[in-house]
Design a protein around this nucleic acid. Structure first.
Lengths: 162, 162
DNA sequence: GAGGAATAAATGCATTTGCATGCAACAAGT
DNA sequence: ACTTGTTGCATGCAAATGCATTTATTCCTC
């Protein structure tokens, strides 16, 4: 008798959920213990630092990070409050704005990458050969309909999450 | 030059985060659109329905679901509020209690499984052959330090998530 | 069996999310 | 230019979460 989702598919689903939640928790905890803000901040800072002249529109950030609009808005609030980014007026579209990363923001991003990369190594790298990691990536890609294009470039100096 | 986390490991990390978030969102949305409560409720109901005589200790539930203690406590509150479960006194340990699933709870769990399994099939099953799904499971297992024992049994009539 | 550590569960409080809505500025059609 | 619709962002409010603490009970160890 054939079941609708095969046992294999269901098992994969369960693991995808459980393993990512465990690994994410572990990494977030490592960062927190090292005294850093949550991963989402890192992601935002990384995106900003990569943007030409260190600034981008909130809408762009939103698309890159795959988070809801209001969430982006408030994330930016917090970054600005902490002096990690600044809002700039957008001359070509007065509804909008630019968000520019500050020096402090760039520094934090770099510092975080130390702890962050160590965590990735600890929780992923050390448990999987490069070949297996690549296999895993390949399989995941088939589910996610791509993680965008820039992923290999991403891995160059900082990995965006979520 | 060798980097600390290899590009492969980093790429796997990124995908693990992004893909699970996308897939989870998609599944949650499907459930919500079908008028059902969040996945966490399903997981709890499933655990309860599987327990002998349909009841278990909150602590157990907590361990199964891998969520914090206070979170379990409040999840149970909600289930009880909706008449899906009931708190029972625990005679052998008066600090504790038992949570018992109600008939309504069992029914909801079954109904949800229809929508839930369809979503799994849609977002996982249809995108991966059984063999590939099994490979994916295997690779994920190496990261997560196990998803408990009961996973194949889990797949029999309802998949717990997270 | 008395005192202290450990465990089960709940809860107050601050922060964060989700949802819907608001409010501008732009774009298009007439 | 004037309605109508759309886009970019902010925000009020309710619900959910995280954290630390509280309360009650049980488990040790002496």
């Amino acid at each position: 008798m054939k079941r609708k989702p095969s046992t294999e598919a269901t098992a994969a689903w369960i693991r995808l959920m459980r393993v990512q939640s465990r690994v994410l928790d572990a990494v977030e905890q490592d960062l927190k213990k090292a005294g850093f803000p949550p991963l989402a901040w890192y992601d935002a800072l990384l995106e900003l630092s990569r943007a030409p002249s260190g600034e981008m529109r909130p809408v762009e950030l939103e698309k890159q990070m795959l988070i809801p609009q209001y969430s982006t808005s408030r994330l930016i609030d917090r970054l600005v409050d902490e002096g990690l980014a600044a809002r700039r007026e957008c001359k070509i579209d007065k509804r909008g704005q630019f968000v520019e990363i500050t020096e402090a923001g760039r520094e934090l991003q770099k510092k975080m990458w130390t702890a962050y990369s160590a965590a990735i190594e600890k929780h992923i790298g050390s448990k999987l050969s490069d070949a297996d990691a690549a296999k895993l990536s390949g399989l995941l890609d088939r589910l996610g309909c791509s993680c965008g294009e820039a992923q290999m470039q991403a891995a160059r100096d900082g990995a965006p999450a979520r």
